[in-house]
Amino acid sequence: MPDAAAAWTADLDLLTGAARLAGARALDFFRKGPEVWWKNEGRSPVSAADFAANDILKKELLSARPNYGWLSEETDDDAARLDCETVFVIDPIDGTRAFIAGKDIWCVSAAVVHRGRPVAGVLFAPSLDELFTAAAEGPALKNGRPVSASEPDAGRPIRIAAAEDMAHGLEPNMAGGVQRISHVPSLAYRLAMVADGRIDATLVKRNSHDWDLAAADLILSRAGGGLVTLDGAPLSYNRPTVSHETLCAAGSARLSGLVEAARHLSGH
């Protein structure tokens, strides 16, 4: 693709505008008792706000890039995306349970994935007035200001967001100890917290999905961190199977140590 960096920057602008529109639409439903349905055999809620935000994203993005594929949590999957080199990967509301409960930590997650890796990504948390953005080869920004993942600090334990059993399983293998951070209801936002240094790391339970991860993966990478499997490999997106195994995320200087300490948690 000629001048790929400029193309991904243009895609980032497109994602940002669409995410802002979708977030504003979701706010119309926030704390107003939107209708809720249950999917995946009653395990996952979806609200009228999710569908309304998804409709805006699909219209805005595909009208501008009709040759791109489409993968969204709230759209029936179409295998035609597998024939596309470049795909939109969308979660109209990441953190739907928090949204329904009237909690602020939820966000619109929107990414462009090219040949299996994200090249533009946006996380917009309208209730917090926070916008995270990144494009390939560019900086990670939060509300227009660069952010960076934290560096190791021998003087304190690693601050990690993880399920209690995973954090306890990790602690014996971390020399400085572990400080477990309370639950963050949006996975994408949790990864953004690693990107901006509010927490040092997170462990992601198996069965997360492309739409939870793609935008945040790029933002974290451009902030000097990484999201990897327990083999230390980067993630590949837009595959036939869109779910993932147990994952680790941290700043690059501590990522390999975290992976080694967490390897026995495979299958969590």
Rank of each mutant, 00 (worst) to 15 (best):
P2D: 07
P2M: 02
A4H: 10
A6M: 12
A6F: 11
A7M: 13
W8R: 11
A10M: 12
L14W: 02
G17A: 09
A18F: 00
A19I: 08
A19Q: 04
R20E: 10
R20G: 06
L21Y: 04
R25K: 15
R25M: 14
A26Y: 12
D28L: 15
F29H: 15
F30K: 15
F30L: 14
R31Y: 03
V36T: 14
K39T: 13
E41R: 15
P45Y: 10
P45E: 12
A49N: 08
A52N: 00
I56T: 04
I56P: 05
L57R: 05
K58F: 03
K59Q: 12
L62Y: 02
R65D: 14
P66A: 02
P66M: 06
P66C: 03
Y68E: 15
Y68T: 15
G69T: 00
G69A: 04
S72D: 12
E73T: 04
E74F: 07
D76R: 11
D77E: 10
D77G: 05
A80R: 10
L82R: 07
D83V: 13
C84G: 09
C84K: 15
C84V: 03
D91A: 05
I93A: 04
I100Y: 06
A101F: 00
G102L: 04
A110W: 10
A111K: 11
V113E: 07
F124Y: 15
F132Q: 08
A134T: 07
A135S: 14
G138Q: 05
L141F: 03
L141Y: 05
L141W: 06
P146N: 09
V147W: 11
E151W: 12
P152M: 05
D153Q: 07
D153R: 09
D153M: 04
G155R: 01
R156M: 01
M166L: 13
M166E: 08
H168C: 08
P172N: 09
P172D: 06
G176N: 13
Q179E: 08
Q179C: 03
S182W: 04
S182K: 00
S182H: 05
S186K: 05
S186D: 03
R190I: 03
A192S: 11
M193F: 01
M193I: 02
A195Q: 07
D196E: 06
D196T: 08
G197L: 04
R198I: 02
I199W: 04
S208Y: 07
H209Y: 09
W211P: 08
L213G: 03
A214K: 03
L218Q: 01
L218S: 02
S221L: 06
S221T: 06
A223R: 00
A223W: 08
A223K: 01
L227W: 01
T229P: 12
D231E: 11
G232P: 11
L235Y: 04
Y237Q: 09
N238T: 14
N238Q: 11
R239N: 09
R239D: 05
R239T: 08
R239S: 08
P240C: 01
V242Y: 05
V242N: 10
E245A: 14
L247I: 15
G251C: 09
G251M: 10
S252Q: 14
R254D: 13
L255Y: 14
G257H: 12
L258Y: 01
E260L: 12
H264I: 06
S266I: 14
